[in-house]
């Protein structure tokens, strides 16, 4: 194995282990902590794939905002007594079977996937010369301008929705 492959092997093993920990921990806070580790590993993988901007965004948005929100809700509900009851639903063996079959299926289909060699204009050198953020920005604000604006509306709706839902009813 070459050095990049060893790096990838480490990331793959660590990420799979962390994902398994996330879905099997009894205590939601432990799950969240594993999720934090997973996000950091994903960010590392993104750096590996030459996507610095996304790596930073992954940590800032996912770890810094979404996961803190989860943690905040977990702490607010204070579910210590939930740890004593059973954590899986009755049908969990079926779920495990579905998971394994899905994994096998996807691996069989996609395991040998390859792409045509080097097609687009954004080669590693092109991104390096301009910077990851600049390239993402250029595409985002030209080709994907409309989806970008729609995304902002989605966020606005989410803000308003969250405020309305979480507000106390005043007669």
């Amino acid at each position: 194995m070459t050095t990049p492959q060893l790096f990838f092997a480490y990331f793959a093993v660590a990420m799979t282990a962390l994902s398994l920990l996330i879905v099997t921990r009894k205590n939601p806070v432990h799950s969240v902590l594993c999720m934090l580790g997973l996000f950091i590993h994903i960010a590392g993988l993104y750096l590996f794939l030459n996507a610095e901007f996304l790596a930073a965004i992954q940590i800032i948005v996912y770890a810094g905002a979404i996961l803190v929100l989860f943690l905040f809700v977990i702490m607010m509900l204070n579910l210590r007594k939930e740890e004593t009851v059973k954590k899986y639903q009755a049908q969990w063996p079926v779920s495990a079977g579905i998971g394994i079959i899905l994994a096998a299926f996807l691996v069989l289909i996609l395991g040998n996937i390859t792409v045509l060699p080097a097609l687009g204009e954004y080669s590693i050198e092109a991104i390096k010369s301009e910077g990851s953020m600049m390239t993402v920005g250029k595409v985002l604000y030209t080709e994907f301008l409309l989806p970008f604006e729609i995304a902002s509306i989605v966020l606005l709706v989410a803000i308003i929705g969250a405020v309305v839902l979480a507000k106390k009813r005043t007669e």
């Binding site: 879905v23 794939l49 899905l102 996937i113």
Partner: peptide, 28 residues
């Protein structure tokens, strides 16, 4: 190789599906 990433992604996705179907805790 690209397929390694895809396999990793597929395995993680399946673990997520398992968690989604099997757990009782809404937060998880």
């Amino acid at each position: 190789p690209l397929s390694w990433y895809i396999v990793l992604s597929a395995v993680m996705f399946s673990i997520g599906v398992f968690g989604f179907l099997a757990r009782r805790n809404l937060l998880i």
